[in-house]
Amino acid sequence: MAPIRICIIGLAATSSAGYKTGEWGIQHLNSLKSSPHYQIVGVCNSSLASSQKSIESHKLGSDVKAYSSLDEVVSDPDIDMVSIVVAIGKHYQLVKPLLQQKKDVLVEFPIAPTVAEVEELATLAKSAGVKALSGSQGRAHPVFRRMKDLIKSGAIGDVVFSTLNSHNALMATPMWPESQSIFLNINSGISRLHLVVGHILDTHLNILGDFKDIQSTLKTQNNKTKLVDNEGNIIQENFDITAPDTILLQGVLENGAVASFTMRTCTEPVDNTGFRWIISGTKGELELTSDPGIFHWGPTGLKLKLREFGGEAKEIDFNRGEADHLSQVSYSGQNVARVYEAFAKGEEDGYATLDDALKVHRVLEKAKLHATWA
């Protein structure tokens, strides 16, 4: 089978030691370079010069084309798929023309600032008959695919209860990078609520199904911070933080089970456990624990346990025997690589679509609009 010819929109020329705004496209690049299922055929940035610089910097070769505009990408018949890894405010205007011209797309999550825009794009993808993927990559991790398989097989019977206790380390005080201030604005579409909780919710919904009803309690413990530039110089003394740093969601799932989700912001969990997820059924329980980290990247120290009532708890192996090229990608980008791998192999349980993302956006919007603020 011929490789999927793909173009990346939003590829920085250089990579910093830590995460820096605008550099996530490099994770997509590394995932695609290591895969035998894809051929990178183009790069499109804000200008032709920027596209050429990225191609040269990453030594992609003369057969990779530099594009100066979206129109060139849309009209090129030699492109099968496009990855969109830019600021959320540009997603809608980039994705829509690509879907209209029947290009498969992968767009980073969150998909767009408003639910209405996500709805329009999901509907357009369906009417165009193309594959439109969401970058909510948590569900691609082997441990979550294993959990879903166990529940589907009836290993714990009918699910009656779920509780997921989590943390995130996005502590916004005493200072915060000005380039990432959008994460602290609840109305930006990519706040801590949307970015951190959204990725977790996608995995939650994929494993347990949709919420029939949901309630939320939100709190912003620290509502001011200093914005600094990349060198640590203060840009703004008193920046207003509106995105919550403490989040409680609970409700009833469509299958009748009761589910809760909590997230606190702290840099060092007391028990060194980043996530603890317990799913209880009529025949047994599952428990997933991990070290501190980022949920949708698949933190280290993952342990999955199953206890059938009347028996002893046992640790479950979730190794899928993955392809060697996936291990060539750094930890932070491995789930991105898994999404591409699942898509290329037609494994629909390994990636999210825009329809899946729309469900998450709707839950988040309801949580935001109808929240009780502590």
Results as ranks from 00 to 15, higher is better:
Thr262Ser: 14
Met263Ile: 08
Met263Asp: 10
Met263Ala: 12
Met263Pro: 04
Arg264Phe: 12
Arg264Leu: 15
Thr265Gly: 07
Cys266Gly: 11
Cys266Pro: 04
Cys266Val: 14
Thr267His: 14
Thr267Met: 15
Thr267Ile: 14
Glu268Pro: 02
Glu268Ser: 13
Pro269Ser: 03
Pro269Arg: 00
Val270Met: 11
Val270Cys: 08
Val270Pro: 08
Asp271Tyr: 07
Asp271Gln: 09
Asp271Phe: 08
Asn272Met: 12
Thr273Pro: 02
Gly274Pro: 06
Phe275Tyr: 12
Phe275Arg: 00
Arg276Asn: 12
Arg276Met: 11
Trp277Cys: 02
Trp277Met: 06
Ile279Met: 01
Ile279Glu: 01
Ser280Met: 11
Ser280Asp: 10
Ser280Pro: 00
Gly281Phe: 02
Thr282Ala: 09
Lys283Phe: 07
Gly284Phe: 06
Glu285Pro: 04
Leu286Asn: 02
Glu287Phe: 01
Glu287Pro: 01
Glu287Met: 13
Leu288Ile: 11
Leu288Asn: 02
Leu288Phe: 08
Thr289Lys: 06
Thr289Arg: 04
Thr289Asp: 00
Ser290Val: 01
Asp291Asn: 12
Pro292Gly: 04
Gly293Phe: 02
Gly293Gln: 03
Phe295Ala: 07
Phe295Leu: 12
Trp297Tyr: 11
Gly298Met: 00
Gly301His: 06
Gly301Ile: 03
Leu302Met: 13
Lys303Arg: 15
Lys303Ser: 11
Lys303Ala: 10
Leu304Thr: 01
Leu306Cys: 06
Arg307Cys: 12
Glu308Lys: 14
Glu308Val: 15
Glu308Gly: 09
Gly310Cys: 07
Gly310Ile: 06
Gly310Arg: 04
Gly311Val: 03
Glu312Phe: 09
Ala313Asn: 02
Ala313Cys: 05
Lys314Gln: 13
Lys314Asn: 11
Lys314Pro: 03
Ile316Trp: 01
Ile316Arg: 01
Ile316Val: 13
Asp317Met: 08
Asp317Glu: 11
Asn319Gly: 09
Asn319Pro: 07
Asn319Ala: 14
Arg320Gly: 10
Arg320Lys: 12
Gly321Ser: 00
Glu322His: 04
Glu322Gly: 06
Glu322Ser: 07
Glu322Phe: 01
Ala323Ile: 05
His325Arg: 09
Ser327Tyr: 15
Ser327Ile: 08
Gln328Val: 11
Val329Met: 03
Gly333Asp: 03
Gln334His: 05
Gln334Pro: 08
Gln334Leu: 09
Asn335Arg: 00
